[in-house]
Design a protein around this nucleic acid. Structure first.
Length: 738
RNA sequence: GGGCGACUAGCUCAGUUGGUUAGAGCGUUCGCUUCACACGCGAAAGGUCACAGGUUCGAAUCCUGUGUCGCCCACCA
């Protein structure tokens, strides 16, 4: 027996050594597994694309959970003999990364991005991203992730950028990308547009003012934003409201706080007759619903607020901030005797998730993806959609999720998904920031050019906006495998032998439920459009990792658990088990050091089980005939192996892990080993020989079964069983049934 | 306002789609330097499975309703 077993298991010294041995072996790469004879060249493929961590700093426990689940699946499938690819990458995370760097620069040098200029800022962000990337990769390796680093990609590298430009051009040519004026969510603090999904609603107290525009105006209206009323062009009432019926169609002109205003009375079913006075002052340029009313009634849409949330009208309000202007308008209303009522209400205001700035709805020229516009796919493997027939991006997203298409775990997340898809509006994809994929559109006077490369000729200027980061993330399952170069759009086939041909669609997309809409839905959309296919067969959504009190981990609370610290203290195996056992998809989990400590103890338990078995089987004959009892013990392990296999096939990873834990500790250690002691002290030589053989055989298979969950300790013990072949490429001890 | 979910031991959670006596980790109590392991061993206490009905031979599990908590989406000016 190796002397190392005389001391307790030490993950700190073992894990880094084992990981570098794995890396050296090259077996993270499926091609090497085939070359080494561990995987058949024609074996079925299995693939997962790593959800790329943002290059904004370091990993958190959520990443650790993701890595634990995915690595468990990957190692299991690799041992099943499949051609198993787990493809790593990182995400440039446009807004998040730029704002982190801008803050750093502001703090350290007191400079804004405008002081630095586009080129210098991008250089600084690039440096930061590189550093973050290196930190992150090291952290990922610490967790034991068996990713094929030879295929690593970045959402902003040259090939991905080419894919993004190609995709933009193709969608534009299909008429699905358009430029238009829309009310967008403008963040005056971050000076950019943000998508609906990046908004956080905060409940605040506000004052609701009821007033008339002028003395002779027949209808009183209510608003929380009196300063916007200088931009009103209509008053909308409900078509059936008897109080106002007689005024519908009338037009009035007056001077409102120094600004000449004309409003038309219109009837619109959107208006709630029970709210306030039942009459709505319509400010088309500064409210989403008002913009839509203006659409229906063909109203003018003057803009009265600019990008810095300042008033752009003449008179006393000129260049005042909106909050200041609000007070001035209220004061003016009171002076003029127009104010009728002032009441406290609570309302939800929209703020930008990243900057905390209050959203100012503004009409802007932006790029959009039309989700409802009919178009036809040239090829379709999406259930329920025929090539050549009318469909839409929303239709693709809707039909993709079905028992024949993509299945989602937990199942109830499908309902949430459909609810979201059904209420989907066009996706605004332009962002007014510098870090990201620049929109591949060039302008020269009235001319516009959309293309993968800059147009020939002088005087062309590229659109200054960049794309929403989810645009490039949406391509992730195929841009990482060589699309568009390895793809033939005419035949709808990938180049023979390319990654795209072998590992598409991917088997499972494993990620947090919080990015179901941001990312999962966008991948379905993009893949559907580009390939006429599904990006993956299954979605496995894990929950959020919370602290022991159930709070979200955050910097401000200081309750962040650093995966590096945890693995340093208890080992990656322990952290992985703690994250996996009992953690069902879609459910948030609480993690505490105590739980992790429990699995560190388990790793040591396993170590001592091995020690006992090795100590007592040095002269074992593995071919010794088994007693009846031992035959039953062997069969018991086979049953366990079958159950664990079924659980893993059904993605019940949390159950498989628990069963193995239970067997190892309560059955093997507590019962079988205890019984063995008396057998070994006895005189029945046949029973001794049998027991030695069966214990070795059980340990051999148990190590294999546990390896996907606790790769390090099992690999280290394995060296005493078969030093010639790493455990990670040995064959799984049970077949997939059915 | 719309949607989704949770409620099981002191705490954190499982319970593999209806089947003996409902499980685990941590915690608690008592006893152990027992020849694999004190990162351990042996024992013990602790649950009306939120509540009320219903279906069933049988319900923590299925149905209906109630309560409490949480999350997501939308947003009324």
């Amino acid at each position: 027996m190796d002397e190392k077993f005389l001391k307790p298991y030490d993950p700190q010294s073992t894990e880094p050594r084992i990981y570098s041995e794995w890396e050296k072996s090259g077996f993270f790469n499926p091609d090497t597994c085939v070359e080494g004879g561990h995987t058949a060249p024609d074996a079925a493929p299995y693939s997962i694309i790593l959800p790329p961590p943002n290059v904004t700093g370091r990993l958190h426990m959520g990443h650790a959970l993701m890595l634990a689940i995915e690595d468990t699946l990957i190692r299991y499938k690799r041992m099943q003999g499949l051609r198993t690819l787990w493809l790593p990458g990182t995400d440039h995370a446009a807004i998040a990364t730029q704002s982190v760097v801008e803050k750093q620069i502001q703090k350290a040098e007191g400079k804004s991005r405008h002081d630095l200029g586009r080129e210098e800022l991008l250089k600084r962000i690039g440096e930061f991203a590189k550093e973050s990337h290196d930190t992150i990769v090291n952290q990922v390796k610490t967790m034991g992730a068996s990713l094929d680093w030879s295929r690593e990609v970045f959402t902003l590298d040259e090939e991905r950028s080419y894919a993004v430009r190609t995709m933009f051009k193709n969608m534009y040519e299909a008429g699905l990308i358009y430029r238009g004026h829309r009310i967008v969510n403008w963040d005056p603090k971050g000076q950019t547009t943000i998508s609906d999904d990046e908004i956080v609603h905060e409940e605040r107290k506000a004052k609701l003012y009821t007033f008339r525009y002028a003395k002779d105006f027949p209808i009183a209206i209510s608003t929380t934003r009196p300063e916007t009323k200088v931009g009103d062009t209509a008053v909308a009432v409900h078509p059936d409201d008897p109080r106002y019926k007689e005024y519908v169609g009338e037009e009035y002109s007056f001077t409102f706080c120094d600004v000449p205003v004309s409003v038309k009375i219109v009837a619109d079913p959107e208006v709630d007759p029970a709210f306030g006075t039942g009459a709505l002052g319509v400010t088309p340029a500064h409210s989403q619903t008002d913009w839509e009313i203006a659409d229906r009634h063909d109203l003018p849409r003057p803009q009265v607020i600019n990008e810095y949330a300042k008033m752009t009208v003449e008179g006393r309000l000129n260049n005042k901030k909106t909050t200041e202007a609000r007070d001035m308008v209220v004061e003016w209303l009171a002076e003029e005797g127009l104010l009728e009522k002032e009441e406290e209400i609570s309302q939800n205001i929209s703020t930008a998730e990243r900057t905390g700035g209050i959203i100012e709805p503004l009409p802007k020229l932006q790029w959009f993806i039309a989700v409802n516009k009919p178009f036809a796919l040239r090829h379709s493997k999406i259930p329920g959609i025929q090539a050549g027939e009318d469909t839409s991006l929303r239709d693709i997203m809707h039909k993709a999720v079905s028992p024949e298409g993509i299945t989602v775990m937990p199942e109830h997340a499908e309902k949430t998904y459909f609810h979201w898809v059904e209420n989907l509006r066009d996706w605004c994809i332009s962002r007014q920031i510098w870090y990201g994929h620049r929109i591949p559109v060039w302008y020269r006077g009235e001319e516009m050019y959309v293309g993968v490369e800059a147009p020939e000729g002088e005087g062309w200027e590229q659109d200054s906006d960049t794309l929403d980061t989810w645009f490039s993330s949406g391509l992730w399952t195929f841009s990482t495998m060589g699309w568009p170069k390895a793809w033939n759009d005419q035949t709808g086939e990938a180049e023979q032998g390319s990654d795209l041909a072998i590992w598409r669609p991917t088997d499972v997309l494993e990620t947090g439920y919080d990015i179901l809409f941001f990312w999962v839905a966008r991948m379905i959309l993009m893949t559907g459009f580009a390939l006429g296919e599904l990006p993956f067969k299954r979605v496995y959504l894990h929950g959020l990792v919370r602290d022991a009190q159930g709070r979200k981990m955050s910097k401000s609370l200081g309750n962040n658990m650093d995966p590096l610290e945890v693995t340093a203290k208890y080992g990656a195996d322990a952290a992985r088990m703690a994250l996996i056992v009992g953690n069902t998809p879609g459910t948030d989990m609480r993690i505490s050091e105590d739980k992790i400590k429990g699995y560190k103890h388990f790793a040591n338990k396993l170590w001592n089980i091995a020690r006992f078995i090795f100590e007592n089987t040095e002269d074992a004959d593995v071919a010794a005939p088994l007693t009846e009892t031992d035959t039953a013990l062997r069969a018991e392990l086979d049953t366990l192996a079958t159950e664990v296999t079924q659980d893993l096939e059904a993605y019940r990873i949390y159950l498989a892990a628990e069963k193995l834990y239970h067997y190892a500790w309560d059955r093997l250690a507590a019962e079988l080993i205890e019984e063995s002691k008396s057998i070994f002290q006895g005189t029945d030589e046949a029973a001794k020989a049998s027991r030695k053989a069966v214990l070795l055989s059980i340990l051999t298979d148990l190590l294999k079964l546990l390896h996907p969950f606790m790769p390090f300790v099992t690999e280290e013990i394995w060296k005493s069983i078969d030093p010639s072949t790493p455990l990670m490429v040995t064959r799984w001890p049970a077949r997939i049934e059915g």
